[in-house]
Design a protein around this nucleic acid. Sequence first.
DNA 1: CAGATTTGACCCAA
DNA 2: TTGGGTCAAATCTG
Length: 365
Amino acid sequence: MEGGSCYEEKTLISELILGVNLARQLRAHLSSDTSPEAREVLIKGILNSYDKALLILQWSEPPIPCQTVQPVPASAAATGIPESPLSVNGSPNSNDFDGGLAAREQFDARETPKKRKMLPKWTNQVKISPDTGLEGPQDDGYNWRKYGQKDILGAKFPRSYYRCTYRNTQNCWATKQVQRSDDDPTVFEITYRGKHTCALGGPSTPAPASPDKQESSQIVRGSHQQQDQQPHDNLTRFRTGLRVETDNLDGGNIIETPCTFSFPSSSSGFLHHEAYSSLGLASNGNHHGSSRLSSPFLSPSTTESSYFSVSQCPVSELVHIHNRDWCGYDIAEIVSATNSSTNSPIPDLGGFSLAAVDIDPNFTF
DNA sequence: CAGATTTGACCCAA
DNA sequence: TTGGGTCAAATCTG
């Protein structure tokens, strides 16, 4: 636990420092002819940084009374697990960090259904992989019970309504709505309302075997993954918060504008060789660059990444990271690729559709 | 049989 | 009046 607290403090400080640095860069950019895109990247970085810092603050404080029954494992604490998956587009309501206020809100909501609408509300967008057999967005760690489904006017897909499984037994009034995106069926918009006050539903104490039909919260897991589910959960969380910054690099000419990649969550699988072979690529591209990695879930001492050029296909660059998380697990993931003829990103090669793997530590690219 | 899901009905705010 | 959110009985599942 101590390691977790120490880690959280360091991460919090580093995130705030990152935010300050990005703000300074933005100020410098404002006085120059920098492109709006580059400024937007900096703004996103700043917002990301403060979002994460706030999340760390939120989850390092004693929750009410949701997670007081079972202590949070150090590994879980170290991941700074948010109540729901953090995404570029979503963050918990910043007004809701006051646990006492949240508790009062929950209490009031219990008394009058009208006041439920006053509950804090925030929305996350979660992308799922069509390649990995996922039926829906990843499990957010809570136990949800579906209580309704509605066809929404103008939406292709119905909206599902979930409430906390422990509503009746523990008066936990957290709810969520899951709406599949019309534009991209692999994207789910998840709207959370209210904080969990249950003792059993916390993300650090995953549900004991919930059914696998729930649209919004289940992952198909192989047997080998169940054995070490905790590390894999951590990996998923670490990926979610991982960012690759490519500005000011020694190989900075590879990607001409500063880029920030936000990692979607993805499942684990033995993808490394399959990914390359299915693309007709050799896995020994020429290393020609490196980048800084920034994530609250990465060990700074072991972070590294590589860029590879690939000559066998119209892929001008394959950004590939090889990393090690705080649990000591090696991770490899393709995070982006660019079509050399059109100079446009190749979405199918992005980090999402090519899931991460725990690679052989002895394997070299 | 207990708990979860489905689905039509109901409520209510806009 | 309409559409979104919730309820609750029926049904399903392990």
